[in-house]
C-alpha cells in the first residue's frame, strides 16, 4: 500500500502545487465529509492537503462590495461575525444547520460546496444570495458562481490542482432579505430531505423587485429556479404570487425516492418550504428597510 501523506501548506501556490502533483490528493478543510469517507473506504486519498494554515483561508473580511469568507472558515465562526449575520442571515443559518455544534466547529461552506452532495445545506442559500467562489489553481485565479461548483453528486467543476480559496457574497441590497429552511425528520443531525434558499429585494412599497430561489436535495445538484423567482417579482408576495412560485418550484423539482424520502414528498415539501422561506426573507427585507 502506498502511504498517504499529510501536508500543511502555507500559501495558495503550495496548495495548488500539492494538488496538481497527485490526482489522489484531497483538500482537507473541516474534514467532516472527507474523514467520514476515508473511514468508510469511499475515499482513499494519496495526500491530504490541510488548507487551514494558508494565510487568509480562515476569517471573514467585509468591504464595500460585500464579504469575502476564507474557504476554511468553520460554520460557527460565521455566527460570530455580526456584520455577515446581519447582512446574510439565511446563509449563516444554513451553514449552521449542518450537523451538530461539534461538526459546525469544523465544517466549512467550501467543503459543503466541494463535497457536491445534492443535499448540502449551505449551497441553496449561497446560490440564492448570488455567492461566488474564488478558485485558485496552477494556472491562476478565477471567480465562479457558487451554482457552478457542483456538477453531479460528488463531482465538481474544479480542474486538477484547483481549490476554492474564498467565498464571496455581495453587499446586501437595500431592503433585501434572505432565508433558508430545510425539511428533516428530526430537529437536528439530519441530512436535508428538501432545502430551499431564497434571497429577495422589496421596494419601498413592498413590491418584490428581485428574487432568487434555490432548491436542495431535489435534483443531482442544487437548482436555481428562475421561474420561481420570476413569479414573485412585481408582486407584493400575495397568495397568488406565492402559489405561482410554489408551482414553479414543484415543477423544477426532480427528486428521487431514497432512504431519506419519497420523490412525491420531496416535491410537495419544496413548495411548502418555499412559501415559508419567502415569508421569512420578506420579513427580514421589511425590517431591513
Amino acid at each position: 500500500m502506498p502511504q498517504m501523506t499529510f501536508h500543511t501548506p502555507a500559501t495558495h501556490d503550495e496548495v495548488a502545487a500539492l494538488l496538481a502533483a497527485s490526482a489522489g490528493a484531497r483538500v482537507l478543510s473541516g474534514g467532516t465529509d472527507l474523514i467520514v469517507q476515508m473511514r468508510s473506504g469511499r475515499n482513499a486519498p494519496s495526500a491530504i492537503i490541510d488548507v487551514k494554515q494558508v494565510a487568509g483561508m480562515i476569517g471573514v473580511r467585509m468591504s464595500d462590495s460585500g464579504f469575502a469568507i476564507g474557504a476554511a472558515t468553520p460554520c460557527t465562526a460565521l455566527l460570530n461575525d455580526s456584520a455577515l449575520s446581519a447582512a446574510w442571515p439565511g446563509v449563516v443559518e444554513a451553514a449552521n444547520l449542518i450537523g451538530s455544534v461539534q461538526v459546525r466547529n469544523r465544517a466549512t461552506m467550501a467543503g459543503n460546496l466541494c463535497n457536491a452532495s445534492p443535499a448540502a445545506d449551505s449551497v441553496p442559500a449561497l446560490i440564492a444570495a448570488g455567492a461566488t467562489c474564488v478558485v485558485v489553481g496552477p494556472s491562476g485565479t478565477r471567480e465562479v458562481a457558487a451554482s457552478d461548483i457542483a456538477v453531479a453528486p460528488g463531482k465538481t467543476s474544479l480542474a486538477p490542482g484547483e481549490f476554492v480559496a474564498e467565498i464571496r457574497l455581495p453587499a446586501r441590497p437595500a431592503r433585501g432579505g434572505d432565508a433558508y429552511l430545510r425539511s428533516i425528520p428530526r430537529t437536528e443531525m439530519d441530512i436535508a430531505v428538501v432545502g430551499v434558499g431564497v434571497a429577495l429585494v422589496l421596494d419601498a412599497s413592498g413590491t418584490c423587485t428581485a428574487a432568487r430561489i434555490a432548491l436542495g436535495a431535489v435534483a443531482p445538484t442544487a437548482l436555481l429556479v428562475d421561474e420561481a423567482g420570476a413569479a414573485l417579482v412585481g408582486s407584493k408576495l400575495d397568495d397568488a404570487a406565492l402559489e405561482a412560485m410554489a408551482v414553479a418550484v414543484r415543477a423544477a423539482a426532480k427528486p428521487i425516492d431514497d432512504k431519506r424520502g419519497t420523490a412525491e414528498y420531496r416535491t410537495a415539501m419544496a413548495g411548502v418550504l418555499a412559501k415559508r422561506v419567502v415569508a421569512i426573507a420578506a420579513a427580514r427585507a421589511r425590517n431591513a428597510a
Binding site: 499529510f6 500543511t8 482537507l28 473541516g30 474534514g31 467532516t32 474523514i35 467520514v36 473511514r39 468508510s40 491530504i48 490541510d50 487551514k52 468553520p74 460557527t76 450537523g99 451538530s100 455544534v101 461539534q102 461538526v103 466547529n105 469544523r106 443531525m189
Partner: peptide
C-alpha cells in the same frame, strides 16, 4: 460511531468542541 454522529468522542481543540473521530491526528 466514528462518523461524527454520536458525540461520544467530543474533546476541545483550541477552545472549541469537536468530534475527535473527525479530526486527523496530525491536525
Amino acid at each position: 460511531c466514528g462518523s461524527g454522529d454520536c458525540g461520544a468522542c467530543t474533546v476541545m481543540m483550541d477552545g472549541e468542541m469537536v468530534c475527535s473521530c473527525l479530526v486527523l491526528a496530525p491536525e
